[in-house]
Simulated assay, not measured.
Amino acid sequence: MKIIKLILCTLFGLMFINAGLDKFLHYMPIPPIEPEMQKVNEAFGTIVWLMPLIGFIELIGGLLFIIPKTRALGAIVILPVMVGIIIHNAVYMPEGLAIAGVLLLINIWMIIDNREKYKKLICS
């Protein structure tokens, strides 16, 4: 079970590191998108600080998630982005919900797995 957790957490972290880096370096090709989605992307683009902030959170969260000692913090850091991904996919791209759902489940699993660490924050 430990090896499965290590592999899933490493892949999860690498996916978010990749997504975060792409927000700064723009190396992944953008597939053709529907006009409604194009409007959403343009709206996000008008908020000049939003994508760099999300990219930074994805990058840091992904790095923290890979390292077992910092995984609990990484799971919490990446959770708001993960919720945004789920909502975005539910509204605009339902075909992406399967992958997003699996990622959310991995994130929730790590939060539950580290619940003892969070108790110190809540019940101090």
Rank of each mutant, 00 (worst) to 15 (best):
V40R: 09
L50W: 15
E116P: 06
G61Q: 05
P29F: 03
I108E: 06
I7L: 15
N89H: 03
L121I: 14
P35H: 03
L50I: 11
G101N: 01
I7E: 07
N41Y: 12
L105D: 10
G84E: 04
L73H: 05
N18C: 06
F44R: 08
R115W: 15
Y92Q: 11
T10H: 08
M110A: 10
M1P: 13
I106S: 01
C9G: 09
K2N: 14
I47C: 01
L64A: 04
I30Q: 14
L59S: 08
L11M: 14
K2R: 13
I33C: 03
K119E: 13
F65C: 08
I112G: 08
M1T: 13
G96S: 13
H26K: 14
F12T: 03
K5G: 07
E34L: 03
T46D: 10
A43F: 15
L6T: 13
W49D: 05
I111V: 05
H26A: 12
A100E: 02
I86K: 03
Y92L: 15
F24C: 08
I3T: 13
K119A: 12
L59D: 06
P32N: 12
P32V: 12
K120P: 05
E42G: 07
P68M: 02
I76N: 00
N41I: 13
L21G: 10
N107D: 05
E42V: 11
V91A: 02
H26W: 11
M51R: 03
E95A: 14
V77S: 02
G45K: 12
I7D: 09
I106G: 00
T46F: 13
D22E: 04
I87G: 03
L73M: 08
A98G: 09
N18W: 09
L64F: 07
R71A: 05
I112Y: 15
K69D: 10
I78R: 00
T70E: 05
K117A: 14
W49H: 07
V77D: 01
G20A: 06
I4E: 09
I87Y: 04
M28V: 13
V102I: 15
T46W: 10
L59C: 06
L64P: 01
M51Y: 02
G84M: 04
Y27A: 02
H26I: 11
G20V: 00
I112A: 14
F24P: 02
V83G: 01
E95K: 14
G20Y: 01
G20D: 04
